Amino acid sequence: MRIPKIFSWLKRLIWLAVIGCALLVGYVWLKPGREDLPWTPLSLTDPIGMATRGKIVDLTGQRNQCLALLESSGLEFSSRDPFGADQCRVEDAVRADAGQMLLPLAPASVAPSCPMAIGLLLWQAQVVQPRAQAILGSKVVKIETFGSYSCRRMYGRGEGPWSEHATADALDVSAFVLADGRRISVLKDWNGDADRAGFLRAVRDGACALFSTTLSPDYNAAHADHLHLDLADRGTMGWRACR
């Protein structure tokens, strides 16, 4: 009776060894960094990783923590007093000071939530500027927008879910102005010149790793003239909308 038991235990040990080797190979192959591990703090100097988006979303409601992280970026900004009510209450809106190249949003009055500003900083530094230099040969000096805050439901309907714009956790980007004077417009260039269209698609694709929702002209006619970016909270491992 002992021999079958010994064989049974040997089989279990072999399977455990195989699983252990597979996990080790997977770990070495993936080589997860801080940016890929959900339990490590968000750092603005880390590359964009698998857990970056979730860490940005988790800053929602963590006003002091978010503002401290924003201050560490070197961005000069003003923190707005809380405003709005009920579903349109905003506690953590911030506005970059005029002339800030770390976050060159236009108009200067646009004030996204602090977590949204964190996402935009990473997008601008690790996606927008590198793609602009590589594809268009010039850096971006202004990101034109249709604004961040708007107390309304999705698509302006009278009922249904509230838009992320209602809490300034969204931004609609309409164009990019380059240092050489060129203006890359979502409306005019999405299906235009190859380099301009390629740049717009590249920054859209890069945004998908940072924001819960990234919508472009490829989604529907309502987004023909802008890229919609938002931080909808769909849980730590929640799905993302990227179109």
Rank of each mutant, 00 (worst) to 15 (best):
A108F: 05
L121N: 01
A85N: 04
Q126C: 08
A117M: 08
R152M: 02
D81T: 04
A221F: 14
L103T: 10
I118S: 05
Q87I: 11
R53G: 06
L30M: 06
V203T: 12
S148A: 10
S174G: 15
T236R: 13
D193I: 13
F83N: 02
L23F: 15
L59K: 05
A197C: 03
G137T: 06
R80V: 01
W29P: 02
D195N: 14
R234D: 05
W239S: 15
P104D: 07
A168C: 04
C114H: 04
L102P: 01
R234C: 05
G54A: 13
D225V: 00
S79Y: 03
V127C: 06
G54Y: 12
L231V: 04
W15G: 13
R201H: 14
A222C: 11
G181K: 07
F176G: 07
L171R: 05
A111D: 07
Q100D: 11
C114V: 03
L59W: 00
R89A: 02
A209N: 10
A132T: 09
Y27W: 14
V28Y: 09
W162Y: 11
Q65E: 10
S43A: 10
K142N: 00
L178S: 11
D172K: 06
I118A: 04
L215V: 10
G147Y: 02
G49R: 08
D205V: 09
A179W: 04
V177D: 12
A197D: 05
W39Q: 11
R182C: 00
L227D: 10
F7T: 11
P217I: 11
E35R: 09
G137E: 07
S148R: 01
T214I: 11
L210W: 01
T236P: 00
P41T: 09
F77N: 02
A179S: 13
Y219P: 00
V140K: 00
D86Y: 04
Q62Y: 05
W9R: 15
P41Y: 06
G238L: 08
A175S: 12
A194R: 15
L37V: 12
R53Q: 13
G198H: 07
